[in-house]
Design a binder for these strands. Structure first.
Length: 436
DNA sequence: GGTAACAGCATTCCAAAACT
DNA sequence: AGTTTTGGAATGCTGTTACC
C-alpha cells in the first residue's frame, strides 16, 4: 500500500479517508502518522486519534527503552570499539585517508556491503554502503555520494581501482561472508570489477568456515525464557564463535536513505567488524571449532567457494579439464617404495598393483573420501582416485600426492597409467612379492 | 564367456536458505 | 523480489563381483 500511494499527498489523503470510512479512526491515524501526512490534511476525528497515538507512543518508547537497555542489548553482539571510531565517509579526502590505512601490507580487514532491498521493481541493486573494518576503527563509505563526486571530478576510476587493489593484494587479508555475492552486487555500479573475482587473493570467506563450525556449539548462554527464533547465516556463526548472535533487524532497511539512522550505522559497523573477531578467534584455536588447520591457509586464495580444511568435502569447484599435472618424470622407484591408498571405486586397480608388489591400502565400501586423505597423510601414501573427488582430495594433500585414474579404462590399463606417472619400475621379482 | 545384482559417482532437478 | 548458493533425492551409467 505504501508504495502504491507513495509520496503523493492526494492519494495519501484518499487513503486516510477510506480507512476512516471502512475501518476506524485509529487505524487511519496510524497510517497518517506512518506516511507523515500533515495533520491539517486530516479529518478531525483522525487528527484527534493521532494525538492519542503520539502520547501512547511516548509511553511505549520509554518502557521499551527500559527493556531494550537491560535485556535486549545484552543478548546481542556488541561492538567492542567506541562509537567515535566508526566513521561515516562522504568525502574523498576522508576516504583516501581510510584507504591508506586499509592498504597496509599485513592488514586484516572485514569487508561488507549494504544495498537497498529491491522489492517490487526489477532493478539491479546499487550498493549504498561499503563497510571496511579494521582492528581499531570501522569506515562506512557512502558510495552513492562518493561516486557522484568522483564523476563530477572526472575520476570515475577511483573506486574500482581501490577495490581492485584491495582484493588482488595477497598481503591484505579480506574477511567476508559470501564475498562473491557482495562483489557481484558491486558490478552494476562499477563494471570495471567484472574480473576482480577471478583475481582475488588473500580472501577468507567465513561462509565456507561456517559449515564446519556449526555442528558444535561450545559456549552458549541461552537461559533466556523467550523463544527467539533460531539464528542463521552470519548471525549463527557469530553466536557460535563469539557467544551472542547478531541483531539483524536493520538488514532490510533502506540503505540509500540519508542520513542513516544510528541503528543502521551500528548494524553496518557490527556486520563488518564481527568478521574480524570471528577470524581472530578462529585463528587462535581452530581445533576447538573443528578446524584442522587455521582458516587462513585453507581459505586464502580461493574464491568464495570452498577450499578445504580437512573436515568435510564438497563436490564442486571448477573441474580442471585434464585432471593431471604435467611435470617432468620423477626419479624411478621400485614398487616396494611406492605406497598408495585406493579409492573404493578402484578396487580392481588396487589388487592389480598389489600383485605387482606395490604397497596398497584399499578403502572399505563404507569409507568416505576423507578417510583416504587421513590415511594418505598419516602413512605418507599417494591417493588413487577418480572423477570429482580427485579435485577435493588434491587440494588436501597437495599436488603430486594424488592421482586421478581414468575410470573408463580397465584395471590393467589404469595400473599402467599409474606406474608410468610415478615412474615405478617393476622387475620380475617384484611380482607377487607381497604374497606369502 | 555371459548375465544379473550391486555400489559408487556424476548429473540433474528441486527446495530451502542466505544475502541485500 | 531477485539472485546465488547449497543440500538432498532421484536417476542413469559403469565397473566389480558372483554365479552359471
Amino acid at each position: 500500500l505504501q508504495s502504491t500511494v507513495g509520496e503523493n499527498r492526494c492519494l495519501q489523503g484518499h487513503l486516510v479517508q477510506l480507512l476512516l470510512r471502512h475501518c476506524d479512526a485509529r487505524g487511519a491515524a496510524r497510517w497518517a502518522w506512518h506516511c507523515q501526512v500533515p495533520p491539517e490534511m486530516l479529518p478531525r476525528a483522525v487528527a484527534e486519534e493521532l494525538q492519542k497515538l503520539h502520547i501512547q507512543d511516548r509511553v511505549e518508547e520509554v518502557t521499551k527503552e527500559d527493556n531494550c537497555e537491560s535485556s535486549q542489548k545484552k543478548d546481542y553482539y556488541q561492538l567492542p570499539i567506541p562509537r567515535e571510531n566508526i566513521h561515516f565517509l562522504q568525502t574523498w579526502e576522508e576516504t583516501l585517508q581510510c584507504w591508506e590505512k586499509v592498504l597496509q601490507p599485513g592488514q586484516v580487514v572485514g569487508v561488507d556491503m549494504e544495498w537497498k532491498p529491491s522489492f517490487g521493481m526489477v532493478g539491479k541493486p546499487r550498493v549504498a554502503l561499503l563497510q571496511l573494518a579494521l582492528k581499531e576503527e570501522v569506515f562506512l563509505l557512502d558510495l552513492p555520494q562518493l561516486l557522484e563526486q568522483a564523476e563530477a571530478e572526472g575520476e570515475k576510476e577511483k573506486l574500482p581501482h581501490f577495490i581492485q587493489m584491495l582484493y588482488s593484494d595477497a598481503a591484505i587479508t579480506k574477511l567476508g561472508y559470501g564475498i562473491s555475492g557482495d562483489l557481484s552486487s558491486l558490478v552494476p555500479t562499477c563494471s570495471a570489477l567484472k574480473d576482480t573475482e577471478k583475481q582475488m587473493q588473500g580472501v577468507v570467506d567465513l561462509l565456507a568456515v561456517d559449515k564446519q563450525v556449526d555442528g558444535l556449539s561450545p559456549q552458549h548462554s541461552h537461559e533466556e525464557k523467550g523463544v527467539r527464533k533460531p539464528e542463521k547465516g552470519l548471525s549463527l556463526l557469530v553466536q557460535h564463535v563469539l557467544g551472542k548472535p547478531l541483531d539483524k533487524r536493520e538488514q532490510l532497511s533502506n540503505w540509500e536513505k540519508r542520513p542513516l539512522r544510528e541503528e543502521q550505522i551500528l548494524y553496518a559497523a557490527s556486520d563488518a567488524y564481527c568478521l574480524l573477531e570471528i577470524y581472530e578467534r578462529l585463528c587462535k584455536d581452530p581445533e576447538s571449532f573443528g578446524l584442522g588447520s587455521g582458516p587462513t591457509e585453507s581459505l586464502v586464495g580461493k574464491q568464495s567457494k570452498k577450499p578445504r580444511a580437512k573436515k568435510q568435502l564438497n563436490k564442486q569447484e571448477a573441474p580442471s579439464p585434464s585432471g593431471q599435472e604435467c611435470q617432468g618424470p620423477p626419479a624411478p622407484i621400485s614398487p616396494q617404495e611406492f605406497s598408495v591408498v585406493c579409492d573404493n571405486m578402484l578396487q580392481g586397480l588396487g589388487r592389480y598393483l598389489r600383485c605387482l608388489g606395490v604397497d596398497v591400502r584399499l578403502l572399505d565400501n563404507e569409507d568416505d573420501h576423507r578417510k583416504a586423505a587421513e590415511i594418505a597423510q598419516q602413512e605418507g601414501r599417494v591417493i588413487l582416485t577418480s572423477g570429482l573427488p580427485y579435485q577435493t582430495l588434491r587440494s588436501q594433500v597437495g599436488e603430486g600426492r594424488c592421482f586421478s585414474v581414468n575410470c573408463s579404462e580397465k584395471a590393467k590399463e589404469q595400473a599402467l597409467q599409474v606406474l608410468k606417472h610415478f615412474n615405478v619400475q617393476v622387475s620380475l621379482s617384484d611380482i607377487f612379492s607381497r604374497c606369502q
